[in-house]
Design a protein around this nucleic acid. Structure first.
Length: 554
RNA sequence: GGCCCCGUGGUCAAGCGGUUAAGACAUCGCCCUUUCACGGCGGAGACAUGGGUUCGAUUCCCGUCGGGGUCACCA
């Protein structure tokens, strides 16, 4: 009985690995092309951190004319969620991070390096496990979970390093005959990797993001094939990323400490190891402590949150890029109109430690993104959002498309567009006073500022509408008339004049304008009032003023 | 606890032995053919800490403290 016989006994049907090596040849890509992937569990849910990884992987592959693929890591059947794949693919595709290869639906896939779902690659893993066993580099382990528990308890009470290694690796010391006998006797087994490592030796590794790191070698005989016949993450990683010819493994930095093990696995399997880039997670501050954004506690961790809030995808992407490479911000300022795709992401410039998620900053990015959109784009985006989250608004927008376009076009499209919309959910509040239906229901109070006296307000409103306002005035004339109105009321026509002569005037032209604005919109903050009046029309203006006056009388 | 990673203003961050220690968001003030916003200008605000090494340390080394990760038949 030798290792080869043992391997045959354990995996009689497994193919020789040469079969797979030939089936999945080296990719024929240009020099420097990066092949990378995103490898989620099919939970149906994608975390903002996952999206972040997807963005980085996608960009890198695109930049180098490489390949970005998606592989589903479903080796843990307990985690399985029905229809868990499609949600992830949709989220990725939505954001424009569509993979070149891999799963495209719950069951279908594209690409020549599949299957891209681990559970159906079972025989591949077994072939490689068999290979390892035949080389004496892996062995069956018959320890029951309870025994492992016992060992661990002993180790803990003796305060020594826990795990299956050295003297504790019982099954490792079995002879091939003993192993074969147990198998023949029907004892349950799993497969463990026979680690060649020694804890007292160091291994140096250069991570693309983290830089040089040094670890003790791995000496744990980790399990590579579980009782259900499926591989553990570590083994699947080595086999898959080798066969799929991944050049760069981009993953969360919680994997950093597994690098010694993974390198060992590649070594013993005879594979060329990929380059690793371990990204720091996006964090959240809680009671002064940093912690990873959690899908249970933090709504903003879910990618769906941004859709619900109406934060544009481009804004989320730009914000993420900001975290990834701080040079992005400068690039964006220098190239305000370029596509995100043109920005060249540099892995080695990524931060080593986790950034705190900053919603305020995201919203600022979002405001800039939205401010650059045309009225048409804002309209379409808002409508799309409203159809799902605000039916009433959607109806209104659809019913008054031309009008809405005008409203949304106020102070837009010029060199200094307004930056007042951060998310689609804010649009309603921003424009509701432009629609009679909504204005009637508007709960805001009339909050006059400097000029508060009822009679004065009535006088300003009445005088303005009867004596001064003319729809055909151009902006300059319109404004000159407001100045005249101010003069008639005894206010300063110029703010400067007002400031230079404290006490001389009780108000200035701006204060008079505020009265008009508040009466018109119930707001002290609106875009250009000239345009608002033009769009509203004289009748509406008059009605609004009347309403404002009668409101005061109550 | 062992091992590993990290520590520049409130936040994201440049910086790589000699700098007035960039920039962005936030904040404050001023300015800007009406307010708000936008924009412009300006202010306040940081190298966790103690030791070294060095003519000189934010930059290099060690300790301390703080934060994070990891130690599964989960990924």
């Amino acid at each position: 009985m030798n290792y080869k016989d043992l391997a045959d006994l354990m995996f009689p049907d497994a193919k020789d690995i040469s079969y797979y090596e030939e089936k999945y040849p080296e990719r024929n890509l240009k020099e420097g092309a990066i092949v990378t992937r995103i490898a989620p569990s099919p939970t149906g849910f994608i975390h903002i951190g996952g999206l972040y990884q997807g963005l980085i992987a996608k960009k890198l592959a695109n930049q180098t004319e490489g390949v970005f693929f998606i592989r589903i890591e479903d080796t843990d059947q307990k985690r399985e969620v029905e229809n868990g794949v499609i949600g992830i693919i949709n989220a990725l595709t939505d954001f424009g991070f569509e993979p070149d290869e891999g799963m495209i639906s719950e069951t279908e896939e594209k690409g020549k390096y599949g299957p891209y779902k681990q559970s159906i690659r079972k025989e591949i893993y077994q072939a490689y496990a068999k290979y390892l066993i035949s080389q004496g580099k892996a062995y069956p382990c018959f320890c029951l979970p309870e025994e492992i528990e016992e060992i661990r308890a002993k180790q803990e009470s003796a305060k020594i390093r826990p795990g299956y290694y050295g003297v504790w690796a019982k099954c490792r010391k079995l002879t091939v005959e003993e192993m074969a006998e147990k198998i023949k006797a029907g004892e349950k087994w799993i497969v463990r990797f026979k680690s060649p490592g020694r804890e007292d030796r160091k291994i140096k590794h250069k991570d693309i993001i983290k830089g040089n790191v040094e670890f003790p070698e791995n000496d744990q005989d980790i399990v590579i094939i579980k009782a259900d016949g499926l591989p553990t993450y570590h083994f699947a990683h080595a086999v898959d990323d080798h066969l799929m010819r991944t050049t760069h493994v981009i993953r969360g930095d919680e994997w950093l400490s597994s690098v010694p093990l993974h390198l060992q696995l590649f070594q013993e399997l005879g594979f060329k190891p990929p380059k690793y880039a371990h990204i720091a997670p996006i964090m959240k501050n809680e009671d002064g402590n940093k912690r990873k954004l959690s899908k249970r506690k933090d709504p903003e961790a879910a990618v769906s949150y941004y859709e619900e809030e109406g934060i544009p995808k481009e804004a989320v992407t730009e914000y993420l890029l900001n975290i990834a490479n701080s040079t992005f911000e400068n690039w964006r300022r220098a190239n305000p109109d370029k596509k995100i795709q043109e920005f060249e992401l540099q892995l080695n410039k990524m931060s080593v430690s986790g950034a705190l998620f900053d919603m305020v900053k995201l919203l600022d990015v979002s405001k800039i993104v939205i401010s650059k959109m045309t009225a048409e784009e804002v309209y379409e985006n808002t409508l799309k959002w409203a159809k799902k989250h605000n039916k009433e608004l959607a109806n209104l927008l659809e019913k008054n498309k031309e009008y809405s376009l005008k409203v949304l076009g106020i102070e837009r499209g010029n060199k200094k567009p307004r930056k007042d919309i951060g998310k689609w959910s804010e649009v309603e509040d921003n424009i509701s006073y432009m629609y009679e239906e909504l204005f009637e229901k508007d709960k805001n109070e009339y909050q006059y500022q400097v000029i508060k006296n009822k009679e004065t307000i009535s006088k300003i409103l009445n005088t303005y509408i009867s004596k001064y306002y003319n729809e055909n005035d151009d902006k300059q004339t319109w404004f000159d008339k407001i100045k005249e109105l101010a003069g008639e009321m005894g206010y300063a026509k110029e703010v400067k004049e007002f400031k230079e002569n404290p006490g001389k005037y009780e108000a200035h032209v701006g204060d008079a304008s505020t009265v008009l604005r508040v009466a018109l919109t119930k707001r002290t903050n609106t875009p250009d009032m000239y345009e608002i009046m033009q769009i509203l029309g004289k009748d509406t203006i008059e009605n609004r003023f009347r309403k404002a006056i009668s409101e005061m009388e109550k």
